[in-house]
Design a protein around this nucleic acid. Structure first.
Lengths: 358, 358
DNA sequence: CTGAAAGCGCTTACAG
DNA sequence: CTGAAAGCGCTTACAG
C-alpha cells in the first residue's frame, strides 16, 4: 500500500469562486406579524400552533392562512425557553465505521421526527485531549440521550445524571452504568447458534470474539456454551481475537493451526466471521461448510456477497430504534419512572456457511 | 435465506422494570444565581461567558468560581433567542448504510465542536409519505447545512434558500442546485486510474458504474476515458450496473461474458469492484490481476481484506470535512459571500488487483 | 470595567 | 374562546 510520487504532478487543489448575490436577510416573521395579518392577538397565534389548545375553528383557519402567506415558522428557541423542553434528543455513537450504525441513526432520527423531536449528535471521545470538555450541544439541554457507543464515557454519564437527563443504551450495555437499555436477546441468540450447530452435526465448537469484553458479548457466549454443552456434552472454547478484521488475523491463524478438529465457530461479529472464512479458505485450504461451519452476528451487507453467504443473526434494529425512542420519551414525560431493560429476539438467517446433517 | 420456525419457541420478549428514585429536577441554575453568589450583576456574568468581552480578571475569576460551585451552564436557548444565531449546523446524510459516512459524520461533528457549533441530523426522505413535511429541526433555524446526500431533496434546498441558510455539499454535487461544495478531484482521479492502467499494460479498459448518474461520477469517467485514449489510442467502454452489490451482479455477468478481452476495469465504488472480483473469480475463473485488473473507489475497510486487496482511491475525508465546515462557517459569518467550489485530490492506494508491466 | 434596563419570541396563568 | 401581561434566561446598547 503506497502512493506513487509519479502522480504527484497531477495533484493540486482547484478553487473556484463565483460571486453571488447575497440577500440581506429580512427580519424574520414572528407570531406578532401573523397576529396582525390575521386580525387576532399574538397569544391566539401561539395557541393555534400548540396542539390541544382550544381555539375556534374559524380563528384557526384565519391564522393558518396568514402564517402560510408570511411563511411563518414558530421559533423553537423561544418555545424551549418558556417550556424548558428542548425537544432534542442527543445521540452518542461509536466512531468505528460500523455499517450498521448509519442505518440505525436514520431509524432513530426518523422515529424521533414522527413525534416532534429532533436528533442532535453528541461527539464523544473524538479527541483524547478534549475528553473532558462538555459537548456544546449540552448547552441546549437535550431532553434525553440515546447511546449506542460500547465505550460510553463515564463523564457523559455523570453529566446526564447531574442534570437529570434520561439516557437509554441502544443495543449494548456498558458495565458499571445503571440506566435503561434495549438490546437484542444475546443469551437466546447464543442458544440458537448452539442449537443450529448441533443440528448441523458440529462436534467441536468455539466462540470467536473481540478483545474488549462487553456485556452483550458475554451473554451470547454464555447462552452458546451452556446450550452446546447441554446438547452434546462437549465444552466450547473461546478465541479472543480483535474486533478489527486485520488485527484479528493473527489470533485466528494461531487458533486454526492449533485446533484442527474444531468444526464449528460462532463469531461475535460478521467481520470476525469473514476474517475467519478468508483465513480458513485461503491459508488453510478448508472448505466451508464441509470442513468447518461458521455463524456470524449482525447481518452486514457483506454477508450476502457471493464469496461469503454467511449464516448470521439479524438484529431487529427497526424495533430496537422504535423501542429506545419510546423508552426515552416515556422517561422524559415521566410516564415511566422505573429503569426499563428490554430484550428483543434476534433472528438466525441461514445461508451457506452451515449445513444440516441430522 | 430463511428463518426456521423451529426456533420460534425460543423467541419471546423479556421486559424488566426496576423502580428507581427519580429526583424532581431542582430549578435550573441561571446567570442570576451566579451573579448573586459572585456579588456582581447578571450582565457581568453574561459577559464573562462571552469571549472577547472586557471584564476585569478578578471579576472573571470570581464569576467562574461561583459558576463552578453552582454547576452553571449558560442556556443556549436564551442566547440563541437574543443573538438569533443557533450555532447549529444541520447534516443531511444518505440513508444507504455506506460505511464511509459514519466516519464522515464523526469528522464533521468534531470539527464543528471545536469552533463552538453542534451538529443536528436532518432526517430527509425517510418516509415517502411525509416527504413534504419540514423536519422539526428547522424550527431551530440551523445556521447552515452540510449535505452529503446524493439525492438532495429539492424542497430542502428551497427551504434553505427561503430562509437564507447557506448550504454546502459534501463530496458530491447534486444536479440543478447551485451552492458551495467541496469534493474530491474526480476528473484527476479518473486520469490517474487511466495512467495507472496504462503502466500496468491494460489494453482494453472499461468504467463500471452505478445506475444513478451523478456529477462526480461523470467527471471520473470523463477523466478516465480521455486520459486512457490519449495514452493508448483506445476508447474505453462504460458498464452501467447498480450501486447495490447484489443488484449489480447480473449486469457484470453479462458484460464479462460478452467482453472477453477487457483486461482492466475502473469501478465507481469499491462495492462494485468487489462484486466484479467475486464474479470474475468465482464464475469466470479469471485471475486478478493476471487476467483482469481492477481499481476501485472509496477505500472501504473491505478493500484491505485478504480476499480482495483492492487497488483503490482514498478520498481525504478529514480534509473534506474540515473544508466543508470552514466554508459553511465563512458563509454564516459573511466572511465569504461567493459560492465556493473546492476540489481536493484523491490518492491512489496500490494493492494487489493491479500490477505494473512496463 | 460594570450595572440597570430593554428586548429577543414565545407560553401560560389570569380575566373576561 | 380570546386578549393583555408577565416571564423564560440570556445579550447588548447605553450610561456612568
Amino acid at each position: 500500500m503506497n502512493t506513487h510520487p509519479f502522480y504527484a504532478i497531477l495533484f493540486s487543489v482547484y478553487l473556484f469562486k463565483v460571486n453571488i448575490f447575497m440577500n440581506i436577510s429580512p427580519p424574520p416573521i414572528t407570531s406578532k406579524d401573523v397576529a396582525k395579518l390575521a386580525g387576532v392577538s399574538q397569544s391566539t397565534v401561539s395557541r393555534v400552533f400548540i396542539s390541544g389548545s382550544s381555539v375556534a375553528e374559524k380563528t384557526k383557519k384565519k391564522v393558518f392562512e396568514a402564517a402560510k402567506t408570511l411563511n411563518y415558522r414558530p421559533n423553537a428557541f423561544a418555545r424551549s425557553l418558556t417550556t424548558s423542553e428542548s425537544k432534542l434528543i442527543g445521540l452518542v455513537f461509536p466512531d468505528a465505521d460500523y455499517p450498521i450504525h448509519m442505518k440505525t441513526l436514520q431509524l432513530i432520527s426518523s422515529e424521533l421526527q414522527k413525534i416532534g423531536y429532533s436528533a442532535v449528535l453528541i461527539p464523544w471521545m473524538v479527541n483524547e485531549q478534549e475528553q473532558h470538555s462538555i459537548p456544546n450541544i449540552f448547552q441546549y439541554r437535550v431532553d434525553g440521550v440515546i447511546a449506542a457507543s460500547a465505550t460510553l464515557n463515564k463523564s457523559l454519564y455523570e453529566e446526564c445524571e447531574e442534570f437529570n437527563i434520561p439516557i437509554v443504551q441502544f443495543a449494548r450495555v456498558v458495565e458499571g452504568t445503571k440506566g435503561s437499555h434495549v438490546i437484542s436477546d444475546n443469551y437466546a441468540a447464543g442458544q440458537i447458534a448452539a442449537n443450529h450447530f448441533y443440528h448441523c452435526g458440529v462436534k467441536s465448537a468455539a466462540y470467536l470474539t473481540g478483545n474488549v469484553p462487553t456485556f452483550t458479548n458475554d451473554e451470547r457466549n454464555a447462552g452458546f456454551s451452556s446450550e452446546f454443552e447441554d446438547l452434546t456434552g462437549q465444552k466450547t472454547c473461546v478465541i479472543e481475537a480483535n474486533y478489527d478484521y486485520l488485527d484479528s488475523l493473527e489470533m485466528i491463524r494461531t487458533f486454526l493451526s492449533e485446533n484442527k478438529n474444531t468444526d464449528g465457530i460462532f463469531c461475535a461479529t460478521d467481520n470476525l466471521a469473514m476474517a475467519l472464512m478468508d483465513i480458513a479458505r485461503l491459508e488453510f485450504g478448508l472448505r466451508i461448510p464441509e470442513d468447518i461451519q461458521v455463524i456470524g452476528f449482525d447481518n452486514v451487507p457483506q454477508t450476502e456477497w457471493l464469496n461469503y453467504q454467511l449464516t448470521t443473526f439479524k438484529q431487529d434494529f427497526k424495533r430496537l430504534a422504535r423501542e429506545s425512542v419510546k423508552i426515552v420519551i416515556d422517561h422524559i414525560t415521566k410516564k415511566e419512572t422505573s429503569l426499563v431493560k428490554l430484550m428483543i429476539p434476534a433472528t438466525l438467517i441461514e445461508r451457506k456457511t452451515t449445513q444440516y446433517k441430522r
